[in-house]
C-alpha cells in the first residue's frame, strides 16, 4: 500500500518535472546564447496552452494537432519577441534587455487577461485517460503520454544540437559569439532559431500541462515559468542536460514537499533556488563561469 502510494507520487513528480524540464530548456538555451533571462518565456508557455486549447475546443482537432499547433504558435511568438524586444538591445548593458523582457511578459499576460478573461477554461484532452495497470502499480495514460512526449522532445533536441549543422552553430555561438561570427555563422539566424526551438518546447509544455490539469488561464505561466527557471539554475544555467535533470528533481521535490506542507507548495521551488545559490551557484551540472578580463 505504502509502495503504491509512493510510486504514484513519483509518477506525479516525474510528470510535473518533465514539464518543468521542457520549460527550463527554453530558459537555458536562450541564456546560453544571449545571457538573458527571457522573462516572457512564461507567457510563451501560456500562449502555447491557449493555442492548443482553441484547436481542441473551437476547431475540434485531435490532441496531436493541438500539440503541434501550440508549439508552432509559441515558436512564432518567441521569434517575434526576440526580434522586437531583445534584438535592438543586444549591444546595450545587461539590465536593459532584462527590463524589456519583463515588459513583454507583463504585456502579454495582461493582454491575455483582457482577451480571455481571468477565469480558467477547461482543456479537454479529447481522449479517454484510462488507468493502465502494471500488476501492482497503476499509471494514468495521460501521465504516460506526457512523459513519453517530453522524453521524445528532449531526445529530438539532443539530436538537433549534436547531430546537425545548425546545432553545431548554436553550440559555437553559445561559446563565443564574436568568433562564431568570424567563422561565418550568421548569429542573428542562430539566435532566432534558438528562440524558435526553446519557445516551441515551452509551448509543448503549455499544452501538456493544460491537458494534464484540464485547465488554462492567462496567469498560468507565472509559477511554472519561475519554476522552469529554477530548474534551469538547478541544473546549471546554459547547460541543456542540466535543465532536464533540474526539472525532474524540482518536480519530485515539489510533489514530495507538498505532502508535508501543501499550502507552501509554490514556495518550495524558491527555497530550492536559494539553497543552490548559497551552496552550488553553478548548478548541479554547470561549469564555472569566468568573466573575460
Amino acid at each position: 500500500m505504502f509502495f503504491q502510494q509512493f510510486f504514484a507520487q513519483v509518477m506525479n513528480g516525474l510528470t510535473l518535472g518533465s514539464t518543468y524540464a521542457l520549460i527550463a530548456l527554453g530558459y537555458t538555451m536562450v541564456y546560453g546564447i544571449l545571457e538573458l533571462i527571457n522573462f516572457a518565456h512564461s507567457e510563451i508557455y501560456m500562449t502555447g496552452a491557449f493555442v492548443g486549447l482553441i484547436m481542441v475546443t473551437v476547431y475540434k482537432l485531435p490532441f496531436a494537432a493541438a500539440l503541434l499547433a501550440g508549439m508552432a504558435g509559441s515558436c512564432i511568438l518567441g521569434v517575434i519577441i526576440e526580434k522586437i524586444a531583445y534584438r535592438p538591445l543586444r549591444k546595450a548593458t545587461r539590465i536593459a534587455p532584462l527590463i524589456s523582457a519583463i515588459g513583454v511578459s507583463i504585456f502579454l499576460q495582461n493582454a491575455a487577461l483582457l482577451v480571455f478573461g481571468p477565469q480558467a477554461r477547461a482543456f479537454p484532452a479529447n481522449f479517454s485517460a484510462a488507468a493502465l495497470n502494471f500488476g501492482f502499480v497503476q499509471i494514468s495514460s495521460l501521465q504516460l503520454l506526457i512523459l513519453v512526449i517530453s522524453v521524445l522532445l528532449m531526445i529530438g533536441l539532443h539530436l538537433l544540437i549534436h547531430r546537425t549543422k545548425i546545432g553545431q552553430a548554436m553550440r559555437a555561438t553559445a561559446q563565443d559569439k564574436e568568433t562564431a561570427q568570424l567563422m561565418g555563422i550568421r548569429i542573428d539566424r542562430v539566435i532566432s532559431f534558438t528562440f524558435a526551438i526553446g519557445s516551441a518546447l515551452g509551448g509543448a509544455a503549455g499544452v501538456l500541462v493544460g491537458v494534464y490539469f484540464n485547465s488554462a488561464d492567462p496567469m498560468m505561466g507565472f509559477f511554472p515559468g519561475l519554476k522552469g527557471f529554477v530548474a534551469a539554475v538547478l541544473g546549471g544555467i546554459g547547460n541543456i542536460p542540466g535543465a532536464m535533470v533540474g526539472g525532474l528533481i524540482l518536480g519530485l521535490a515539489e510533489v514530495f514537499g507538498a505532502v508535508y506542507m501543501s499550502q507552501y507548495k509554490d514556495a518550495i521551488a524558491f527555497a530550492v533556488l536559494i539553497l543552490i545559490l548559497l551552496f552550488k551557484p553553478t548548478g548541479l551540472m554547470g561549469r564555472r563561469i569566468q568573466e573575460k578580463v
Binding site: F223, L226, V233, Q263, A267, F270, L273, I274, L278, I289
Partner: peptide, 25 residues
C-alpha cells in the same frame, strides 16, 4: 546575502521568488 554574490540577473528572479514566498506566508 545569497543572491548578490552572483550576477545581477539572479537577483531579479530571487527577489521575485522571495516576494511570492512572502505573499504565501
Amino acid at each position: 546575502v545569497p543572491t548578490l554574490r552572483l550576477k545581477g540577473d539572479y537577483l531579479a528572479i530571487a527577489t521575485l521568488g522571495f516576494g511570492e514566498i512572502m505573499k504565501n506566508i
